[in-house]
Amino acid sequence: MSLKGRDILSMRDLSRPEILEILKASRALIPVAEGRRPSRALEGRLLSLAFFEPSTRTRLSFETAAKRLGARTITIVDPAASSMAKGESLSDTVRMLSCYADLIVLRHPNEGASRLAAQLSDKPVINAGDGAGQHPTQTLLDLATMEERFQTLAGLRVVLMGDLRYGRTVHSLAHALGLFGSELTLSSPERLSLPEEVRRDLDQMGAKVTEQPDLEKALRGADVLYVTRIQKERFGDLAEYAKVSGSYRLDPALLRNMKEKFAVMHPLPRVAEIPPEVDRSPHAVYFRQAFLAVPVRMALLSLILTGRVPPGGGR
């Protein structure tokens, strides 16, 4: 089993052992990600970061990951300033990028864009989010955060809260947690509930899934609360948005009786769903989660480009 030369397009493409291999490599790279140990493991490599949609965290963490390992990057950040604005197809842009760089990281507003890119590119493609579709590296860093906290992914009790319908991170996370035998509790307003097909996929995997719109009840016995942002743009009626988003705000009082290791996670950016008071709680791990984006993406770059992770994480 090797990830060398592989595309990472969807969590469906990764097996359990492959996910665990990535998480293990990621742990080894934490000292490099923290800047405590220098690495030139990817020196001489050139990565293309093609971001056809706004992104802060994802782009910066890929760039950080590449640079911490000594790779260089070429970047498209503003499609309006690229030839896409002249009407060039994604297909042609990808063919060009695959001639220039050793690997393409693609964020694109259309679902399936990275699958198409991977078919056209001679070089590996990493999907950094395609429309409302897949965002596998986000799921991997979510898993890394849970694994670091609990030393295992098996049998965790995870509450998914907020926009479970349109939130792209939550679908592939649910799939991955299903692979590891987690118990999932879905806590969302009815109109933002998990799409039927994602639910069916979980049922087919034999995942244990329950619905509990009342967050207080949903949190009983939970290990993780995974909060997603309720997106304003999904609501035609702003009054309805205000009502729904107001009801899905994490009340800090709810955290008082949770288990010691209980973790509140959020893919960020957050708006009002987690009030700033929660940041000081020992349960708040969303900034650690944001940091782990770097070693996880370092691990992927390293495994895809060289098939291994440098011994001790650095060289």
């Binding site: 197809s89 297909s91 259309n110 399936g112 198409l116 395609d130």
Partner: peptide, 9 residues
């Protein structure tokens, strides 16, 4: 919003 509906070849 699928990439196959965007006029790509």
């Amino acid at each position: 919003n699928c990439i196959t509906n965007q006029g790509e070849p």
